[in-house]
Simulated assay, not measured.
Amino acid sequence: MKCPLSAGVFTQLAPSRVFMESVDMRHVLKWRPLQASCSTAVLYSVQFQGEFELSVLNDSWVDALECQLTSDPRCDLTDDLGSDSDYRLRVKAKCGAATSAWTELSPPFNRRDTVLMAPEMSVMAVGDSLQVSFGKLPLNADVRVTVWRKDQEKAVEYWMPAEQRVLSVSGLQVAQYCVRAQTVLKDQNRSDSTNEQCISITGPCFYCEKCPLVQTPPWRKPTAVLLSVVFTAGFLLAVFWGVAHCHPDRCRTFFRKEPLPHSLKADWVIQIPISPEDAELCELIQVCSDCPSEDL
């Protein structure tokens, strides 16, 4: 259905039932799709105006870049609504050359009003510690973790920023402990608490491979170094003492001198050739390492 706006100009019906669906700081603007007859697809465009656009940009509206001329009757504005101010939001429809008027969200939206869901939590015992892990958490939120020993009523609260994702509670006694948590935004908006999860602590764990978060005792490393030094010094001292006090006969047994191989002995014959005129001066010289020291 179209209605005349002025002579020769028609406008499309405006979107209706515009509302914001915001869960865990994910903000999605939605509206009812138009049922008007149109030869082409109905396209939608979204704009927003926050405190910055109102005061600094002279009351201007800014296009939501991911939601311009889109056929999807929804717009994810999570990245656009970047402050805790009140935002005015509006949407219009376009069918061919016909464009509707803007339909504005009422009342304005503030991201602090997002609906917080109970966080996804898992608890694991690591030695004498509890490791509490969380799934995806809302931006700019905190997590309040409550821990108590099951046989006692006294509980301890821990606060953790959402970016941390993992909380470790160490130094616990051998007993059963229970944990529950909830998401908190600006101390005003809170989620429901998780169901309590209970797990048993069996004691400290210094050397097992399954205890990556439990550090080894501080004395272990220097003690290992000292023992290595003492062992090495004792071994060297024993070797030097044994060499210094070794009996000659026993030393010959352990340090026996092997004879030289025959190929290394100097027992070959050297013959010096001379001319015929000096034949009478030719002598045979035998070099032998085992010969007695007497004239040849």
Rank of each mutant, 00 (worst) to 15 (best):
L227F: 15
Q182E: 14
Y158Q: 05
P212N: 01
R88F: 14
V179S: 03
L29W: 06
S71M: 05
C208D: 11
G234A: 11
G127E: 03
L172P: 05
Q35E: 10
F254C: 10
W148Y: 14
A98V: 03
F254N: 04
A93E: 01
W102G: 01
P107Y: 07
W148E: 02
T146S: 12
S45Q: 00
N140M: 04
P217Q: 09
C3T: 15
Y44E: 02
L226I: 05
V23Y: 10
W102N: 01
A224S: 07
M117L: 15
N189F: 07
L29K: 03
P212M: 03
S200C: 06
L34K: 03
G82I: 08
S100H: 02
L227C: 12
H262R: 15
E21A: 11
S168P: 01
W219C: 04
F235I: 08
T114Q: 09
A244P: 07
V184R: 04
L284A: 08
C246E: 06
G171L: 06
P138T: 06
T114C: 07
N110G: 03
W148L: 06
M124R: 14
I201G: 01
F231I: 07
V56T: 13
T40A: 12
V166E: 15
R144V: 09
Y177P: 00
V9A: 05
L139K: 13
S85Q: 11
Y44P: 00
K221T: 13
C75P: 05
Q35R: 14
L116R: 00
Q176E: 15
V214L: 14
G171F: 07
T99K: 02
D72P: 00
A244G: 12
C75S: 00
E280D: 15
F10C: 07
C178T: 04
